[in-house]
Write a protein that binds this DNA or RNA. Structure first.
Lengths: 188, 188
DNA sequence: TTATTTGCAAAGGGTTTGCACTTGA
DNA sequence: TCAAGTGCAAACCCTTTGCAAATAA
């Protein structure tokens, strides 16, 4: 269970190993926890869910689980290292499976339109590990968030073109909805 | 106003330049905005304030400004590039001056006790720039957040030792309050 | 003059919690 | 059996907003 130095702590859980991991701490495997793990395990690689999205998916699946249990479960699993908690710029957290071969992606966000681009970069991961080792800590996860202005916003003359009512962050969301694209990064 | 490629967008404002920048967009220089800029400009390097902390400081200074104005102002200044918006793991945003020579620090957080260590690392900044250039975007800021388990939590056998009531994130805060230390990183 | 900004109080959105009931081990 | 987990509704915290009064340009 203890990871080697210079390696991230990460587990690969099945329903069975989840049960023993939970039980070893006096916790229990419930149908809700098993279902939630399953949703994440069948989620396409690179996808991540907010608590609310997860709640909706469970409802659509015909296996409704209360929002509070969803929140409690994702938080539990994040602390256990099963899930990865993402802090995107959207004001609420997202979760994804923290598998044995995690998709260590980072995010590039346009502060004008919230457009998000995911990318991978091993060098950043390595720099992070270096810092963690120096501090004598154990890495769980490492995320670079880059705040940018995208070409469209630049073309509109940022910041001069900011609409006078931009203070309501939703008023500019229409410019380009929080859509997601991906670019790959061959180790750059 | 347009930054060169491969360089971050950043400004250095005085009360005067703040006024013209504001006026050029049909906005106004108010005593509140001037005071708030001043607070950030006299803040020790590396410090950052939440809206509430800023509000308190203003009150102590004998220049009270309503919380809503504080929120509106820091958001305005962040969008203008005057302030840097930090997303720490504490659930609320912090702001600091985005000066011409910013303190590009990153954060290492223990998910058990919320202990935070700040560090600098130019290589991470450069990797971020590389990604931004590739996407054709313009960098505003770039923050690495590393989630870790600190030695104390490891010693207690994480995750086995997680108190049964940790689900309330405040219940474990007493273990080690969100205190802040700094380590320097000679480019590692 | 008049559109912008302020302060207040109320509303919002995501998240957490108290409590009685249910359930896993 | 009985501590842990669930669901519900209410509470929370940080943040945003509607509106009338104040104010910068």
């Amino acid at each position: 269970m203890q990871a080697l130095a210079s390696e991230a702590i990460m587990f690969s859980y099945t329903a069975g190993s989840l049960k023993s991991e939970l039980n070893s701490k006096g916790w229990r495997l419930t149908p809700q926890r098993e279902t939630i793990l399953q949703v994440f395990q069948t989620l396409p690689r690179g996808n991540h869910l907010s608590a609310e999205e997860l709640h909706d998916i469970l409802g659509q699946r015909g296996e409704p689980i209360s929002l509070s249990t969803v929140y409690r479960t994702v938080k539990l699993m994040a602390r256990m290292g099963i899930l990865r908690e993402l802090e995107l710029a959207e004001g609420h957290k997202h979760y994804e499976l923290n598998s044995a071969s995690p998709h260590h992606h980072h995010h590039l966000v346009c502060v004008q339109c919230n457009r998000t681009i995911e990318f991978e970069n091993d060098s950043i991961w390595k720099q992070g590990l270096k810092q963690v080792d120096r501090a004598g800590f154990q890495m769980i996860d490492c995320q670079l968030t880059i705040y940018t202005i995208c070409p469209e916003a630049l073309r509109m003359g940022w910041p001069a073109s900011v609409p006078s009512h931009w203070m309501c962050s939703r008023s500019i969301a229409s410019m380009e909805p929080t859509e997601k694209s991906e670019i790959s990064s061959p180790q750059s």
